[in-house]
């Protein structure tokens, strides 16, 4: 550890999320016996983490282990139910389809966001007049409030008056009930979610492209490599670490997606676009009689999925730091 010099730490820390962790004490500073006083600066955020992350999480676990009614939710004293809520959820006929929707939604969103984002990043990496401005403009969908995007897509995909069906009509395709038929609702929310996610993939992959030294390309151009060969020979391998991180962050974000689906379809019709997140919300807040126990249980299952993805992310990030 002491072999790490101060400067190299600072340089490495520049842009990485996981790199926030400083790797131990710097050398040649023996006159500081203890650095515990630094916790004075960390105390606010530590208390905050405990009160506003750890405690809600704990409450959520507690909710999932008790049998709550509206009455006991307000007044307390709900009986301990062990894993009953989890059993209820796992044996619910809706569990299988909902899990499938979650996985399909995540996989399809990631595939299209990443592919389109990569294509756009490669295109904008060529530096033509206005490329900076246009690249900035493409960020707009990512910055808009999700309710704005979701309601705009709702109207675009409206069965009777939506522009998408009107455009299909021009080509001679019958109108599709995008949001109101069980066969299409999941596709519709995936389309909207892909649209929102493209800018993030574009920006991150673009900055990854910028980190590739131009000499590499110049050398391969001298060797007479074609554009396609350059992509598979240089760009793709060198971009692999960034791609991996992009996909994993995308995975974590996509598993969490709730707003878009809830606003566009409420998970319906008949649960055909429900994911674990919307199901959990429906149980807790979407019905007249809230079922907090099962809702919290689903939430906890979701967090396990997200944490697995998160730990993989941290592992990969750490490994890249070490290189």
């Amino acid at each position: 550890m002491p072999s790490t010099t101060e400067t190299s730490t600072a340089v490495r820390d520049q842009g990485g999320a996981a790199s926030a962790a400083p790797p131990g004490p710097p050398p040649s500073r023996a006159r500081r016996p203890s650095r515990w006083w630094a916790w004075g600066f960390l105390a606010p955020v530590t208390i905050y983490l405990a009160a506003f992350y750890a405690y809600p999480l704990y409450r959520n676990v507690e909710l999932s282990l008790r049998e709550y009614t509206v009455r006991s939710f307000v007044q307390g004293g709900a009986p301990f139910a062990g894993l009953d809520n989890y059993r209820t959820v796992l044996t619910d006929p809706a569990f299988g389809p909902t899990l499938t929707h979650t996985l399909v939604f995540t996989a399809a969103s990631l595939t299209f966001q990443f592919t389109i984002g990569m294509a756009l990043a490669l295109f904008f990496h060529q530096h033509f007049p206005l490329s900076r401005t246009l690249r900035a403009l493409i960020l707009v969908p990512w910055l808009l409030p999700l309710i704005v995007s979701a309601s705009t897509w709702s109207w675009l995909l409206n069965s009777d008056s939506g522009l998408v069906n009107a455009a299909l009509g021009v080509v001679g395709i019958d109108p599709v009930n995008w949001l109101t038929s069980p066969g299409w609702s999941l596709t519709s929310v995936i389309i909207a979610n892909v649209w929102i996610g493209i800018p993030f993939n574009l920006v991150v992959l673009y900055s990854g492209l910028q980190a590739i030294p131009t000499e590499m390309y110049e050398a391969s151009a001298l060797d007479g490599a074609t554009g396609w060969q350059r992509f598979w020979g240089i760009t793709f391998p060198l971009l692999r670490p960034v791609s991996l991180i992009t996909l994993l962050l995308g995975l974590i974000y996509t598993l969490k997606v709730f707003d878009i689906i809830w606003i566009m379809t409420k998970g319906g019709p008949t649960g055909s676009s429900a994911t674990l997140a919307t199901w959990s919300y429906r149980l807790g807040f979407g019905n007249l009689l809230p079922e907090f126990g099962p809702g919290a249980a689903i939430g906890n299952l979701l967090i396990v999925l997200a944490l697995i993805a998160g730990l993989v992310y941290i592992r990969i990030e750490r490994r890249q730091q070490l290189r």
Partner: peptide, 16 residues
Amino acid sequence: AQMIPGIIMAMGFYAI
């Protein structure tokens, strides 16, 4: 903490 889905936080906050 960044990876915790919003719905879970929301339910915990609601109870509190």
